[in-house]
């Protein structure tokens, strides 16, 4: 499974899955480029279990506003459409595996 491009329009539908993770990013954000491989790997190892998406913040301001995002990268974690977690910035211990465990234990 690859990472799905999510927009303001498709957001609510996307996060309605049992488990969903959305990586909010922008191309000129260095730390975002470092999170990207982790998100890609998460999509790979959690295919069928977690819906994994990414949202370009500049083109999708409504979602950024709704979730009060003021720093990227921000990873939003949803369970059945409800926001359960928000991870801001680079977290040295973060791996695709640890993120998967965190999400599924929510």
């Amino acid at each position: 499974m690859s990472v799905i491009e999510v927009t303001d329009a498709s957001f609510d539908g996307f996060v309605g899955a049992k488990y969903a993770v959305v990586d909010c990013w922008a191309p000129w954000c260095g730390p975002c480029r470092r999170i990207a491989p982790i998100i890609e790997k998460l999509a790979e190892i959690s295919a069928g279990e977690i819906a994994v998406g990414k949202l370009l913040v500049d083109s999708n301001p409504a979602t950024s506003r709704k979730y009060n995002i003021t720093a990227i990268p921000t990873i939003l974690v949803f369970k059945n459409g409800k926001l359960e977690g928000q991870i801001v910035g680079l977290n040295p211990g973060l791996t695709a595996e640890s993120l998967k465990d965190t999400v599924l234990e929510m």
């Binding site: 922008a26 000129w28 954000c29 260095g30 500049d58 720093a71 928000q86």
Partner: peptide
């Protein structure tokens, strides 16, 4: 941090 504190103007300026 993430609630008005940022370490990257290039990343977060737009907010």
């Amino acid at each position: 941090f993430g609630k008005g504190v940022s370490y990257c103007a290039a990343c977060d300026g737009n907010f």
